[in-house]
Design a protein around this nucleic acid. Structure first.
Length: 591
RNA sequence: GGAGCCUUAGCUCAAUUGGUUAGAGCGCCGCCCUGUCACGGCGGAGGUUGCGGGUUCGAGCCCCGUAGGCUCCGCCA
């Protein structure tokens, strides 16, 4: 037995007993005679004191201890000398006076100190196993465990069963780029790693499972971000005979359980609902951050008869004129204003019109175009007062919303509007568009995925070829401006599914090759079903207050998909390639 | 594919307008130190300033290229 207690266990009540502890040498304070070490394990710290007069031999060895050596000590639990108790430590009333010291392993000089946050993330990632010792990361991993545990317990109580689905699965053309795995036994063919267990979970519904979930690893071969890794984890849920409100209630209950277990806080349910159109119209985002105002205000009424061509032109061609009021941001710097203008153009605006209110005056190149009535209407609708910065956009509705939505978020960063906020603002965004036209590919793509059910009222629009107007029976759950989950009610009828594939430009033959199994399944009594997938990494990231999902994953990859610790991906030897019937294409010829 | 920021000792950072031998704290090594808890004292080692080129009498600093890291856009059904 290495230990009888952990390092956050001994208290005054243990004084007099013999205890054995094991752990890492956190700090050593060597006074030449007496030697103190703070012994650390995952639970905490306990001070160990070596006294030459008590045990000269053991103290002699203690002089050689260094940071992060792994030791086992056994001895008497003693009260600290009066006046030397440490109120900062839970174990600060006592100390261990060892009669034996066993060095289990010595540590080399450390690559970086554990007691501060090194900013050098690639160094941390290279020594991830070492970085994980820091209480910060250890706490995140434990929180993640609490979240998955609470999820499993809750879904189990609700009658859901966890089912594993294949990792070696089939490539599909829709969606993200697949990671491919060459097949040795069928040369020239490939498995794909799942982007999500989407088809399997629907087939489980056809299989009569009715209530399925999985803490599922998913893989997408796309470029990375702070909140995107090539492999990540979803809480994947599917149920039969459900409507959206059944999914809402289930997820609200699940998140309530998660926040109760992981954070000890009660979140208000049910979450408010907002349609996609409302979200775009008021916040310029399909995942609105409602922790601050700065709403997009529609000014069509104000400028309906305006003499200002930019605004009138947009309105006359069926577009929109909107503005946001960045309260107290007339102090915007030139650099910030340039950045906002660049952003506005990047997202499709022709320019960025503004009003700065300083010293009681509207500083703006626009004012001369406005009538007194228009100024009065602006003042009241936008609640304009001294020190404000008002930004306008006039264009197609989609462009206006997108531009102002992006500016709104950037300004909130400039003004630190959500800094230090502990608000938890949940909402459902519903009624997403079913299809979106991709100009680059010159085709319609599914906004959610090709199995998403159109709203019953909108099936006729698909029949009429008005793809852009059809809405989906789809929903996202949003927390503080971050999409933490999304799902939909699915198509369960083969003819409707075929109609969707046709709209997506998938030929009859391709439908059979790529989706034949699911179309056949739908002909054998598929129940109505739907579900949702929650991004576990993002959820835990928000709960832990982190800016990156790397901080809540044990072994993340860097932003080029490289594991700096193990140096994967790596080359393989020729034999492995030969087994797979593969050859590297080699260097590209010079252009 | 594109944009921005960054790279100086093991770590965190400094180095005036381009100017002497590139410094500090922590860590490391040695010696001293019997009640500390960021223990303390004295001494020491440790640098191809990411790499390559250029400008200059002289480059950590300016210019070009390149590698790596981070963030963002595109992409992510």
């Amino acid at each position: 037995m290495y230990r009888t207690h952990h390092c956050n266990e001994l208290r005054a009540s243990h004084i007099g007993i013999t205890a054995r502890l094991a752990g890492w040498v956190h700090v050593r304070r060597d006074h030449g005679g007496v030697v103190f070490i703070d012994l650390r394990d995952r639970e905490g710290l306990t001070q160990v004191v070596f006294r030459p007069e008590e045990n000269a031999e053991v103290t002699e060895i203690a002089h050689t201890l260094r940071h992060e050596d792994v030791v086992e000590v056994s001895g008497r639990v003693a009260p600290r000398i009066a006046g030397t108790e440490n109120p900062k430590l839970a174990t600060g009333e006592v100390e261990l006076v060892p009669s034996s010291l066993r060095i289990l392993n010595r540590a080399d000089v450390l690559p970086f100190p554990l007691d501060s946050d090194p900013s050098n993330e690639d160094l941390r990632l290279s020594y991830r196993y070492f970085d994980l010792r820091r209480p910060h990361l250890a706490r995140n991993l434990r929180t993640r465990h609490r979240v998955t545990k609470a999820t499993r317990d809750y879904l189990d109580e609700q009658g859901f069963i966890e089912i594993e689905t294949p990792i070696l699965s089939k490539s599909t053309p829709e969606g993200a780029r697949d990671f491919l795995v060459p097949s040795r036994q069928t040369p020239g063919k490939f498995y794909a790693l799942p982007q999500a267990p989407q088809q399997y979970k629907q087939l489980l519904m056809v299989g009569g499972v009715e209530k399925y979930f999985q803490i599922a690893k998913c893989f997408r071969d796309e470029d990375l971000r702070a909140d995107r890794q090539p492999e990540f984890t979803q809480i994947d849920i599917e149920a039969s005979f459900v409507r959206p409100e059944d999914i809402y209630a289930l997820v609200e209950g699940m998140l309530a359980a998660v926040f109760r277990e992981a954070q000890g806080i009660e979140i208000p349910t049910p979450f408010p609902l907002m349609t996609w159109h409302e979200a775009m119209d008021q916040f310029g985002s399909d995942k609105p951050d409602r922790r601050f105002g700065m709403h997009l205000i529609d000014l069509a009424d104000v400028f309906a008869a305006s003499s200002f061509k930019m605004f009138r032109g947009a309105l006359d061609t069926g577009g929109a004129v909107k503005a946001i009021n960045a309260k107290n941001f007339a102090s915007v710097t030139t650099g910030q204003m340039e950045e906002l203008t660049t952003m506005a153009k990047l997202y499709g605006a022709k320019g960025l019109a503004f009003i700065k209110v300083e010293n009681g005056k509207w500083q703006s190149p626009l004012v001369k175009f406005f009538t007194d009535e228009e100024k009065a209407a602006l003042t009241s609708q936008l609640d304009i007062s001294e020190g404000d910065l008002v930004l306008f956009a006039a264009d197609k509705w989609e462009v206006v919303c997108e531009v102002l939505g992006r500016l709104r978020l950037r300004i909130s960063e400039f003004q630190k509007l959500t800094a230090g906020s502990t608000a938890l603002d949940f909402l459902w965004v519903t009624d997403f568009p079913l299809l979106a036209f991709d100009a680059a590919e010159n085709k319609w793509n599914a906004v959610h995925h090709p199995f998403t059910r159109p709203k019953a009222d909108d099936v006729a629009l698909i029949d009429a070829g008005e793809f852009g107007k059809a809405r989906a029976e789809a929903y996202d759950v949003v927390l503080n401006g971050v999409e933490i989950g999304g799902g939909s009610i699915r198509i369960h009828e083969p003819d409707l599914q075929a109609k969707m594939f046709a709209a997506l430009g998938v030929s009859e033959a391709d439908q059979q090759t790529m989706f034949g199994h699911i179309l056949r399944a739908f002909r054998l009594g598929a129940p109505p079903h739907g579900g949702i997938a929650m991004g576990l990494d993002r959820l835990v990231m928000l709960i832990c207050g982190e800016q990156s999902i790397r901080e809540v994953m044990a072994f993340p990859k860097n932003n080029r998909g490289i594991d700096l610790m193990s140096q994967s991906p790596s080359e393989v030897d020729a034999r492995q390639l030969r087994d797979l019937g593969m050859k590297l294409a080699g260097e590209k010829p010079q252009a």
